[in-house]
Design a protein around this nucleic acid. Sequence first.
DNA 1: TTTATATATTGCAATATTACGATAATAAAA
DNA 2: TTTTATTATCGTAATATTGCAATATATAAA
Lengths: 108, 108
Amino acid sequence: MGITKSAVFTDEQNMLANLFKALGNPARLAIITYLIKQESCVCGDIVDEIPLAQPTISQHLKELKAVGLIQGTVSGKSICYCINPAVVQLVINLFEGWNEQIANKCCS
Amino acid sequence: MGITKSAVFTDEQNMLANLFKALGNPARLAIITYLIKQESCVCGDIVDEIPLAQPTISQHLKELKAVGLIQGTVSGKSICYCINPAVVQLVINLFEGWNEQIANKCCS
DNA sequence: TTTATATATTGCAATATTACGATAATAAAA
DNA sequence: TTTTATTATCGTAATATTGCAATATATAAA
């Protein structure tokens, strides 16, 4: 249906699903990769780096902000974006937990 | 357009986007969580664990298999599924790399 | 205040995703 | 072979996502 039955899952499952959904697009991954490889926060030049129209980039940035992956602060005429380290750590913790549970099982 | 412009991104970005897209659904996260918390590979009872119809679960399993997150082997009348540890490790490595690059920046 | 620059919002068309009923395929058991 | 149990596929309806042009908003400079 294009409609996910969120109600039958836990809040945590829905929260994580939204986080991964935000990561599940090459444009948004490209934005994050670009933000990470820069020395500091990035002001304004994201649109020049990714071959998509400005409204499209703006929409992707909004989605990344909505799940807390990036933060944006106004700086003069432009807006500075950077990664939220806490969310990166959250994903690491999740997968490390999975990794430990996977160890010593049939497929390992 | 509902159509992602994959051609303008790298193969790696598209591959990772597909991986995260597969994780970006609470039903598929629930399947993975269930597979992980079991002692060994799971044969057949996934449909009983998640409140979605059998064809829906089957389709989600197919998508998880397509990105390599799970493996399925035939075992009699049913099929045994388990997590692919290599993909879990791949995500850990990606995020650990991000984490290192994020350190000592403005937002850290 | 007017102008220029940067980002956000709106509206829309094209396509993708989600879910399920019906049904097919597969494999063991009777 | 027929039956039973398990999983996969097909077809379809409802909804979501992606991308962009047009336009609005916001902020600083002139």
